[in-house]
Design a protein around this nucleic acid. Sequence first.
DNA 1: TATTAAATAATAATTGTTATTATTTAAACC
DNA 2: GGTTTAAATAATAACAATTATTATTTAATA
Lengths: 130, 130
Amino acid sequence: MKHADIKYTNQRVEILDFLGDFQGHPTVEDVYEGVRQKLTRISKATVYNNLKFLAEKGLIKEVNVKGVSRFESNLMPHHHTICIKCGEIKDYESEQLSDLTMEVAENIDDFTIRSADVNFLGVCKKCMEE
Amino acid sequence: MKHADIKYTNQRVEILDFLGDFQGHPTVEDVYEGVRQKLTRISKATVYNNLKFLAEKGLIKEVNVKGVSRFESNLMPHHHTICIKCGEIKDYESEQLSDLTMEVAENIDDFTIRSADVNFLGVCKKCMEE
DNA sequence: TATTAAATAATAATTGTTATTATTTAAACC
DNA sequence: GGTTTAAATAATAACAATTATTATTTAATA
């Protein structure tokens, strides 16, 4: 799924690779620390710029949780459960909900849809037991 | 809709009044500036604390957009359209989507649901014309 | 090879939010 | 009513995430 109009610099390739391998929804800091293992001289600003850039190009997705940006490479339609205690984020799939969400999205007047996000906020099992 | 276990201080009453009158989804700064018209000596920390407090008590709702907290007093089930250019937020209602969202929410395993948020991201009419 | 634009690194500045502490307010008890 | 106690507030410091700035590097184009 390469895009012709995107310059695949070393930094961008490493960021994409990192996100592809990562299980979960890393923050900018996570990505920075991870990518730094290979590109020791990469700047955090570059990580910010490229995560934003790649999200705008649609190669990755941004998830904003409690004011901090997180990213994922899972582009398939899905939702998120977010624990309001520990912050854990998990993917959750409901094809029916994805379908209805997109159908509704496409019929909103005077609005050019880019994406539709469904977030379930609550308390995860582990936090409930405490 | 008064709650017995909530102390209705002047600050909290003014914040609730402000949110009730406000058309839209004000930030903490908006609320602070607004409430300051009547309670000139109110502290911004108090605004933060009470917005958080009132949201936890379920008297208002928090909407996090692009990393900044916004609040609203509309407690009816509804969604939001968010313009990625100008940041405009508008309420959007789809009973069918609200219903399905809640139904899905209640059936997520190992997760105690608190709320389910649906955000439509895209470009508003005004921004499209530019 | 020279020119130009894009990308990057390093870091300063900004913004939204949280933490701290002293003071004030108000409820609960005698 | 006065005293004790806890909660709420004001003022401000501290913090963390993000954005802006600027010089340098890289790479595409002529």
